[in-house]
């Protein structure tokens, strides 16, 4: 029984078809990646799941249909997206950003405990908790975006290119965090252009090309696929 099941998802912007009816699934606690070139439709897929763009198809999450729900209602059901470009609230403090991550949760004591847990996980954020988030470096902002998403206690975390624009050392740190989150049992759908990184981290993967899924399977097998090697791994 998979946590997220997507059937025939289509996304279009006016006349442009960005996603052309794709099927995929993410199981409980699974780390799945979605790779593809720039413009393949990866971000549009995530936006479709979150109800941020016009889309059609069937999306089932934890047994219930998500179709036609507003974005905030989808978020409240346990899907958290860390958007491309991170979407940090630059004029809110680090602490306020984390706080608003827990917006849908009412149990203040647990939220407080999670806040301390995030500060434990990201000491850099703890040091800067009362600083405006806009003053953080790119890597710190990515950490904040992930910590903020985790404050919602999501059942499925959607990550859109978490490594984008970061220095190699920071990328390593971010991917360590992705692995840590996954080891806590949170399911993750990881979108990346950096196929090498994504296939190395995940258990299963999907390859997307011009709006369609062209290949899927265990990440190990995808990494060894001659086509994938040629197109995405530069080998």
């Amino acid at each position: 029984m998979s946590l997220l099941r997507v059937k025939g998802l289509k996304v279009h912007y006016g006349g442009i078809q960005a996603v052309r009816g794709i099927d995929f699934e993410v199981g409980e606690g699974e780390l799945v990646c979605l790779i593809g070139a720039n413009g393949a439709g990866k971000s549009s897929t995530l936006k479709g799941l979150m109800g941020m763009v016009q889309c059609s198809g069937q999306v089932t999450f934890g047994g219930t249909r998500l179709s036609n729900l507003a974005t905030h209602a989808i978020a409240a059901r346990g899907l958290s997206l860390v958007p491309e470009g991170r979407g940090i609230f630059g004029r809110l403090t680090v602490a306020e950003n984390l706080d608003i991550g827990a917006y849908t949760r009412r149990e203040r004591a647990y939220v407080r405990a999670d806040l301390e847990r995030m500060y434990g996980l990201f000491p850099r954020l703890a040091e800067r908790r009362s600083q405006l988030a806009g003053t953080l470096s790119g890597g710190e902002q990515q950490m904040l975006a992930m910590a903020r998403a985790m404050m919602a206690r999501p059942r499925l975390l959607l990550l859109d290119e978490p490594s984008m624009g970061l220095a190699p050392l920071m990328v390593q740190k971010i991917y360590q965090t992705v692995a840590d989150i996954a080891s806590e049992g949170v399911a993750i759908l990881l979108v990346e252009q950096n196929a090498h990184l994504a296939l190395h981290t995940s258990q299963r993967g999907y390859v997307m090309e011009s709006g369609s899924i062209v290949l899927s399977g265990p990440s190990q097998a995808l990494a060894n696929d001659p086509g994938v090697k040629a197109a995405y791994l530069g080998e």
């Binding site: 979150m50 941020m52 974005t71 958007p83 979407g87 706080d99 919602a152």
Partner: peptide, 17 residues
């Protein structure tokens, strides 16, 4: 807090629920 977040980005505020 929701008002200030919404003022900065409606889209991301929705993502926060």
């Amino acid at each position: 807090r929701a008002m200030r977040a919404t003022a900065q980005s409606r889209e991301v505020a929705e993502l926060m629920g």
